[in-house]
Amino acid sequence: MKPRQKRFVFIVVALVALAVVVGLVLNALESNVNLYFTPTQVFNNEAPHGRSFRIGGLVEEGSIKRANDGLTVNFVITDTHKSLPVVYKGILPDLFKEGKGVVAQGKMEADGVMHAEEVLAKHDENYMPPEAKDALDKAQKAQGMEKAK
């Protein structure tokens, strides 16, 4: 082999080895790389006890309740299998809405409610003008009614 072919093989082998190592490390770190736990994971006792963690999912439809002080909000986070109630006192981000993604950080208290210190809205990957959104919502509603029949 010519020296430059040797160098080429060396670089390729080194890169593959490195990729495998990084892959294994990331695989081992998996639970630490994930930003949040899902409600199902919390019910399976995979989430940490007694310390703060993040939980992510959708805000359940019709679950948002605002207290009279104007700051405290109760809502339910769901991953469509399991649901968890959350209470939060503070200003919510603009994208926080029912049926939309949300990530809340806080501690699970003895009452089974997560007391959140921070609530973040998780945006989905859909970009469309309001008219298209209305049309889509109507179509989905029509489909839902069809199913109900």
């Binding site: 080194a14 890169l15 990084v22 990331l26 994930n34 930003l35 973040l120 990957e125 970009y127």
Partner: peptide
């Protein structure tokens, strides 16, 4: 530079492999 290139696929696929706050690819 060569060693660091391992990071690029990690950036690209991160939203697929893990739970992230960043949304997935549109």
């Amino acid at each position: 530079a060569i060693v660091g290139s391992v990071n690029v696929p990690i950036i690209y696929f991160s939203v697929k492999w893990w739970n992230t706050l960043h949304q997935g690819s549109t």
